[in-house]
């Protein structure tokens, strides 16, 4: 019963898959363009945006803060162990701050965001599609791209960088808790070494830029997967899985590229 595909058929299949991917990217680009390249009617758009910032940002706060705290504390523990061998535990604050601002803050926040907020957005939009809410909105004469997709996109771009900064701040405090309060690193040096080595423009600024790029990519993927999903329950579940997987891969890949560009010369 199993059909053996000829090598020719397999190659053709691969080609068809590749074309399908290019088509999907094209659809995604067109969808994004139509959603954001319009002048919004502020009176209606702002309340929608506020609602989405709540759903996407505020509701992610708990996981971001908890994760940040624990990661900061673990960093404190692990880095202390390494530094104490060199007698350089005073550098703890500096190391924690640099790691977080340059890398962990934007990346971990983006991964958590993709998992929590991204999949929720995909499921929501996919469900709206399968219950014909998007269709009926069109029939009433309201463009779902402007009413449903755009507010979620902008909310993601606004909320995620803020979440990343909250993450980094909480983690630095977590590291302080472990390092200073528990392991006895001198409080003054925790902060002064940090202030001496963390550059606002380079480290914090680049971290924010990374966050913005990650945010745009993650929310774009989330929104598109929902909008493009097959309107069945397996279709939606596949779409949410795709959101999490593609977002995570994209974040990690972009992180490498951005790091190579931003932090090359030192």
């Amino acid at each position: 019963m199993a059909e053996q595909r000829t090598p020719g058929a397999r190659v053709a299949g691969l080609g068809a898959d590749a074309l399908a991917i290019v088509e999907a990217v094209g659809r995604a680009g067109i969808m994004l363009f139509h959603s954001v390249a319009t002048v919004p009617n502020l009176r209606t758009a702002l309340p929608l945006l506020a609602r989405q910032i709540y759903a996407i940002g505020v509701l992610s706060l708990v996981i971001i803060i908890v994760a940040g705290l624990f990661i900061g504390m673990v960093l404190g523990l692990q880095l202390y162990r390494v530094l104490v061998d060199f007698g350089s535990e005073a550098a703890l604050g500096q190391l924690i701050a640099l790691t977080l601002n340059r890398e962990l803050g934007p990346v971990v926040t983006a991964l958590l965001f993709a998992g929590r907020a991204g999949s929720a957005v995909t499921a929501e939009i996919g469900l709206m599609k399968s219950t014909e809410q998007l269709s009926s909105m069109e029939m009433i004469g309201v463009d779902p791209l402007r009413r449903i997709v755009a507010p979620r996109f902008w909310a993601g771009v606004i909320a995620m960088p803020l979440l990343a900064m909250i993450f980094s701040s909480v983690a630095i405090l977590g590291g302080w808790l472990v390092g200073v309060e528990w392991l006895g690193v001198y409080d003054g040096s925790y902060w002064s070494a940090m202030q001496n080595s963390v550059e606002f423009g380079e480290d914090i600024g680049n971290g924010i830029i990374k966050s913005l790029v990650f945010a745009a990519v993650c929310i774009w993927i989330a929104v598109f997967q929902g909008y493009d999903a097959e309107p069945t329950s397996e279709g939606i579940s596949r779409a949410t899985t795709r959101t999490v997987v593609y977002s995570s891969l994209a974040v990690l890949g972009l992180d490498f590229l951005l790091t190579a560009v931003m932090f090359k010369g030192f």
């Binding site: 960088p161 900064m165 909250i166 940090m194 963390v198």
Partner: peptide, 18 residues
């Protein structure tokens, strides 16, 4: 939420990067 975000930003700017 927005205020918390900006506070985090200020914290990073002043206390962390001096």
């Amino acid at each position: 939420f927005l205020i918390a975000g900006f506070l985090a930003f200020a914290f990073l700017a002043i206390k962390v990067s001096g």
